[in-house]
Simulated assay, not measured.
Amino acid sequence: MLSALLWGAVAACSLVVGAIAGVVRPWKPRFVGWVLGFGAGALVASISFELAEEGFRIGGALPVAVGLAVGGLAFFLADFGVVRVGGRNGRAGLPLALGALLDGIPEQAVLGIGIAGGGVVSISLLVAIFVSNLPEAVGSASDLKANGRRGTHIIAGWAGVAVLCVAATVAGYQFQEVAGSQLRGGIDGFAAGALLVMLVTSMIPEATEKAGRQAGLAAVLGFAVAAGLSLSS
């Protein structure tokens, strides 16, 4: 239990670090676009090698497919709610935070399940979560700050997301006793589906708008780093 709590906190702390970095100083739009592009590439690698592939391996195609559909629909509906209450006035800030929450909870639950099942943490998954969290938080906090949100409120909001993600790691650890392989595969699919919709609707368009064609190069770099970490483990 203590191990799950510790590693969950390590993975989630990048959310708070990124939020602070996005609040304490203004960042040039091109830099934010590069960060978002890098994070998008890292997330694509995480979806490919840590979520979808692992889900297919342990649970089979059907649970992952169902999880993908449910995760994608969950983000779509939640993002629609953000739009209805005026969240788009903050550009991609709120959708990025929402994406971090919707993918972070199942993703870190998978981390906790892995710790409980094998007794060791997946370093590649841990680093992939950390690397992908950081640019999401920086980009979101920068957008929200630029649109008039108070820095303390932004940091507090991201701290809340981080606490929920840590709690999900502990819950996943406890859940290992009753979670069968198909359910674990569905959880992987849910995280992947939420991430894919967030990437296409919010993160990638924002990165391209801010960094132009250079966002694609940043995404390739992010993918290479995260994929290398995943495949080397």
Rank of each mutant, 00 (worst) to 15 (best):
S3T: 14
A128H: 02
G72Y: 11
V23P: 00
L6Y: 13
G185N: 06
P205R: 10
R150M: 02
L68P: 03
A207S: 14
I20A: 14
G119W: 05
A61V: 14
S46F: 14
C13I: 10
R30M: 11
G212K: 08
A12F: 05
L94D: 00
S132L: 05
P29S: 13
E177T: 15
V220K: 09
L144I: 10
L43T: 14
E54D: 13
E53K: 15
V178D: 09
G8E: 05
L111W: 04
G185A: 08
A61D: 02
G160Q: 05
V220H: 05
A224G: 12
L102V: 02
G118L: 09
L101D: 04
V70R: 06
A137R: 03
M1C: 14
E107M: 11
L96I: 11
C165G: 09
A207E: 02
A21R: 03
A52E: 00
F76K: 04
V23Y: 00
A11V: 08
V161Y: 06
S132Q: 11
F130R: 02
A156S: 15
L5V: 12
Q108I: 07
A171S: 03
V138K: 03
E53M: 15
V200H: 11
N147D: 03
G39Y: 07
V35Q: 02
L164H: 10
E107Q: 10
P135Y: 12
G41C: 06
